[in-house]
Amino acid sequence: MGKIWSFIHKLGSPKWFYAISARLMPWFWVAAAALILVGSVWGLAFAPADYQQGNSFRIIYVHVPAAFLAQSIFVSMAVAGLVFMVWKIKVADMAAAVMAPLGAVMTFISLFSGAVWGVPTWGTWWMWDARLTSMLILLFLYLGVIALRGAFSSRDSGSRAASVLAMVGVINIPIIKYSVDWWYTLHQPATFSVTSRPAMPLEMWAPLLIMVLGFYCFFIAATLMRTRSEILRREANKRWVRELAGGPS
């Protein structure tokens, strides 16, 4: 237990985080590349076509992982904000700062693929379907967090304001989701959940699971990489960063 705590404590120090993430990051990049490659080939070429939607259903393999990630990233961003607010761990805030644009991109991917998927399925680019509507609101939430962080001239105020907003947002996300679901009850049941047995045959959901895992690995790797850059940027005047850049030791 003590060992774990000291590890977490060390992670809070930018220098240690920089060192540890350097060792972890390549694994996540490799895992992400492998999983996404396998999932893509399987999903695009080998999974059977849906009996109703035909081959357009293959959009699910990018739509659902992006939608999963869009929601998870907001939650991780809020958790990072909480860690930053409570324990004043700066690395947490740096991670939260780089997660926001990443989450916004994922939300956009899921919105775009959802809209494109709508053409063969519903015959229109946009339908006020519960899931698309929730995603659109989530995109606005992300944009709000990003804009708020950028609006402050002091970085620390911006960080704390964005943390508060992320926490307020994460409390609201389930409420928004359920109220939108209630508002538009005519929606497909959740495609895939970890707890219940999926209704899709194995050949269909196995590649989906692989893609979801791949996207998560991609998110972790990209977050680590950009957090490392953020550390360099914010700690540029620290001795260890200067040594790293070839300065006097």
Binding site: G144, A151, S157, I176
Partner: peptide, 23 residues
Amino acid sequence: ALTVGLSRGGVLLSLLVLPLYIP
């Protein structure tokens, strides 16, 4: 409260608040 210190908080305020108003 989040935008009160910002000189041009008005538009930002609506961006922050409107999504939370939906329920």
